[in-house]
């Protein structure tokens, strides 16, 4: 069943789109990740122009993060003050990213930059996750008499604590400079615009290891920031680059919400370490495929690109 996408201007199979949405939604529900880092490359693999894939995926993440953000809001597991600071950085990052995207597209290098970003980030994140989950599984197997090393609740002073403009974050129990959250937010916002991802895979580790936020508010706060940043990115990409395809986005969303629910149910039956190892493996597989495409001799040594700003 073919469907013509009005903005991407190609005809694709609707069942394929629903299936992709459901498949990635299933994984994201199971692993508790956004799935943008899988969906954007997959859309490009099936022939959606990269510019449309990235912008439309931002639109889909609005839908997939909104229900989670709402749930965390109701439960109160969300640090609004920190979220707003991240958002200030994220909004400026998104505006910057959309401009950068337009410039790179004009230079004919956007595909390369998107691929390089993916290979770099997926390689680092996947590698770290893989090592961490493997050691966790290994440790559990060795689970011996001693109940593990005592976890120190006392925070060590780092360079982060020497920065000025400190502020209290009662919800997270932190007294921290406003600079790190804004910088992290900016960075994630830029990624969202260029890579078509929510950026949770960068934000969550950064919140835990750099900002040292308590884990119970990390996911909610991250979803809160992702929701607003992807909404802004969608708006900016649509108004500036006209690259958001609502027909594509809705097909993915419909498949995605169903897949996510099924995935969340399936995820409860599998142990966390095994899940993380499987996710790490998948991230590395996507990374390897994109990396291979960068270095392998292409089928055609020429590329035809539309001239930017040319008529419509």
């Amino acid at each position: 069943m073919q469907i013509y996408l009005p903005i991407a201007e190609i005809s694709v199979n609707l069942l394929l789109l629903l299936g992709l949405g459901a498949g990635v939604g299933f994984l994201s529900g199971m692993f508790g990740v956004g799935g943008g880092f899988l969906m954007t490359p997959l859309l490009m693999f099936i022939g959606i122009p990269p510019a449309v894939a990235v912008s439309t995926e931002a639109n889909q993440i609005v839908a997939s993060s909104s229900s989670g953000a709402l749930a965390h809001w109701r439960r109160g597991t969300l640090d609004i003050k920190m979220g707003l600071l991240l958002l200030v950085g994220g909004a400026s990052g998104s505006i910057f990213g959309v401009q950068l995207f337009a410039i790179l597209r004009g230079m004919g290098q956007i595909d390369l930059i998107i691929s390089l970003c993916y290979v770099g980030f997926l390689g680092i994140i996947g590698g770290l996750m893989f090592i961490e989950s493997v050691t966790a599984i290994w440790r559990r197997r060795q689970a011996s008499a001693a109940g593990g090393p005592p976890v120190s609740r006392h925070r060590k002073r780092t360079w982060i604590d020497t920065l000025p403009f400190k502020m209290r974050f009662p919800k997270s129990g932190l007294y921290l400079s406003v600079i790190p959250p804004i910088v992290i937010g900016f960075f994630v916002g830029t990624l969202a615009a260029i890579m078509g991802v929510g950026g949770g895979f960068v934000m969550v580790p950064a919140m835990i290891y750099v900002l040292r936020m308590p884990t119970n508010v990390v996911v909610g706060t991250s979803l809160f920031q992702i929701l607003f940043v992807t909404a802004l990115t969608t708006f900016l990409q649509a108004s500036q680059n006209q690259t958001v395809d609502v027909v594509l986005a809705l097909s993915l969303i419909v498949g995605g919400v169903i897949g996510a629910q099924l995935g969340a149910r399936a995820g409860r039956r599998v142990s966390a370490e095994n899940l993380r190892a499987a996710l790490a493996f998948m991230v590395l597989a996507v990374c390897a495929k994109l990396g291979w495409d960068l270095v392998a001799t292409p089928a055609d040594l020429f590329a035809i690109l539309p001239v930017s700003g040319a008529g419509h």
């Binding site: 909104s66 709402l70 909404a231 969608t234 708006f235 649509a238 419909v254």
Partner: peptide, 14 residues
């Protein structure tokens, strides 16, 4: 169009 795209996504998500 951008606003409608965001609104639709929110509507579906919620």
């Amino acid at each position: 169009y951008g606003l409608v795209a965001v609104a639709l996504a929110l509507l579906f998500g919620w």
